[in-house]
Nucleic acid binder design. Structure first.
Lengths: 221, 221
DNA sequence: CTGAATCCGACACGATACTG
DNA sequence: CAGTATCGTGTCGGATTCAG
């Protein structure tokens, strides 16, 4: 595979970018960090990517030892998952996530795909990078019409996405629609408080207070 | 500026990559993290970039608020430097550096530019990411024929590049040529020990022992 | 319906030369 | 020193097609 995107620097940063600097590569890794995905899961999640480019990128990532292809013999289903080498790109995604939250967020565009699970992944990563901790383990659930409900959990040390598995009552449930949820995340200060005021939130006073603190929602009028 | 590289995801990682994901952008930031640079400094350091693309990328980074252009009135000299927003890309570069050192290094290619200062920047960043600490503050100097001598210093807490300014005797001096120094960094285990054996090292026994430990040079034959 | 392959056009990028 | 200008190539997007 004649890489055209070479820099010819003797430098670890340049070497890394030669491997995962092409368009889409890091976003594929981002989505696989949530767990193994099928081709069409990735296709949908990446929104604008064409099958051709997803195929090519997956092959490149595979031959770079970042992604593995799991195909059960007999089954037709193919699952792509990260190797250990690929999972170690986590800190790169986390650093981009922090910078993006701090310096590159804006409200969602009309045609933009809003994946609830992905937005909670970003929140968990940001909280972990910022060292935000709750006093006790807790769980939040966010519900919107178009997405399966998603949960984020603080286990006493770090924040993680939660799958569908065990449903002990979460400390707090937010009900909204995906658009409003995204606008909530993109806004700051009073604007964020205004959007928050229009969402339905169920939970104890302490839980709500901590949620407001975590998202820096001013107490406002 | 009609960004062609848009992803249309509501996601901080995708937003970041829309700003700094184009070819060369992050490498310009990498070089500016060492301090302000002139156009031709960057041109030389980036090795294969053409003036046209360097100009375009600098304009983009400027209008994104990542880079500032300093031009003394009357003087022709222009210096580019990072804004605070740009400096906060440091953790992104650091994460790419760690991954590159762990998973993407290989010996230098023949035509490859080897900048001593940049390689020490990468080492300092890697040591800091890995939490390597010395028991006392210390300084190393690396000398090669083609580059100005470069120094790296541990101040008791973090590792930093040192400019040319104050020259109290470093704890350890390595004399080599740039090619051998790069091969030393690219090698592991016994290979690294073999290259190390061919370099001239001056310093106290403790200083040399710590250097070997920091670079994981086996004691060997 | 999943998991692709193929063709074509737009534009991002590279190589080289030239300018205030 | 700090860029422009010109021209060719490669990367990528869009639409269509295809086999299991």
């Amino acid at each position: 595979m004649a890489r055209t995107r070479t820099y010819n620097h003797f430098c670890p940063v340049a070497r890394s970018l030669e491997v995962i600097g092409e368009k889409w590569s890091l976003l594929i890794v981002r989505d696989l960090l949530r767990g193994p995905q099928r081709f069409t899961d990735l296709l949908r999640g990446l929104n604008n990517i064409t099958p051709k480019w997803l195929t090519l990128r997956l092959r490149e990532l595979e031959s770079a030892g970042i992604v593995e292809r799991d195909q059960e013999p007999g089954r037709k289903e193919v699952r792509y998952r990260l190797t250990e080498k690929g999972a170690q790109l986590g800190p790169v995604i986390a650093a981009l996530n922090v910078w993006g939250v701090d310096h590159a967020m804006r409200p969602p565009e009309p045609g933009e795909g809003i994946l609830l699970a992905r937005s909670l992944q970003a929140i968990a990563s940001y909280f972990n990078s910022r060292g935000l901790k709750a006093e006790v383990p807790l769980e939040w659930e966010i519900r919107t019409p178009d997405n399966p409900p998603a949960r984020i959990r603080f286990d006493g040390e770090t924040w993680r996405l939660r799958g569908e598995d065990p449903p002990p009552a979460p400390a707090l449930v937010v009900e909204s629609d995906a658009q409003a949820w995204a606008e909530f995340l993109a806004a700051r200060g009073e604007d964020r408080a205004a959007v928050f005021a229009r969402m339905r939130v169920a939970g104890g006073d302490d839980a709500v207070a901590f949620f407001r603190q975590a998202f820096r929602i001013p107490v406002g009028a």
